[in-house]
């Protein structure tokens, strides 16, 4: 009597096990059919970005994986820069009180009269987008935000993407992980290009 009962339960368990294994395989197959094959990473579309400042605060990394990048071929190299200087600035120099960037991450260097080059020190940049807003309102819009993939841990769900008011974040193919402005944006370079930042 007892052995029969054990056998019945054993049988039930094996049956359920097989059914579950088949169901699991089916679900895995169904999910994999939806799979992309290639991997994807998070990126933000600078055309949609409204510079709300949440990239600096919402990222699971501190400081954020989003940084400001500069499309130099879009820049006007102005002496008075909407992205670099405070509004209504008196003196066009590099004094701290004249700078817009809260962490002084933009380096201003003289090239030739009357042009100045602006470069981002990504180690300092917190991705707040203050300069992007300034550059977009008063300049050519050559400063913009991008997810930097040497920092991004490619979360299952991007915390900034969920907090983004403009729905500017999306998953892009890992082969083309940036949405760049300027000439580089048209050619989509994938190698670690450029000279130096």
């Amino acid at each position: 009597m007892m052995s029969r009962e054990v056998d019945r339960r054993q049988f039930l368990r094996t049956g359920l096990n097989s059914a579950a294994a088949i169901a699991l395989g089916g679900a895995a197959g169904a999910a994999a059919v939806r799979g992309s094959g290639g991997d994807t990473v998070w990126q933000l579309d600078p055309e949609k970005c409204v510079q709300c400042g949440r990239c600096a605060t919402e990222c699971v990394l501190k400081p954020s994986a989003v940084k400001c990048v500069h499309a130099h071929d879009v820049c006007g190299y102005c002496e008075l820069c909407g992205g670099y200087h405070q509004p209504y600035v008196k003196e066009l120099n590099t004094a701290a009180e004249n700078q817009l960037c809260p962490v002084a991450a933009i380096k201003r260097t003289w090239v030739e009269d009357p042009y100045y080059e602006y470069t981002i020190d990504e180690d300092l940049c917190i991705g707040c987008g203050v300069c992007v807003k300034g550059c977009g309102s008063f300049g050519n819009g050559s400063l913009y935000l991008q997810v930097r993939h040497d920092r991004c841990v490619n979360c299952n769900e991007c915390a900034i993407a969920k907090a983004c008011p403009a729905d500017a974040f999306k998953r892009v193919p890992a082969k083309h992980p940036y949405i760049l402005k300027g000439e580089q944006g048209r050619t989509q370079p994938i190698e670690e290009g450029g000279e130096k930042a």
């Binding site: 130099h72 993939h149 370079p189 994938i190 290009g193 450029g194």
Partner: peptide, 19 residues
Amino acid sequence: KPEFETGYTMPGTLTPPPR
């Protein structure tokens, strides 16, 4: 876009690749 008279070359944007 400025026309530079010195030999200045514009730096490109670094694109560190993902994993």
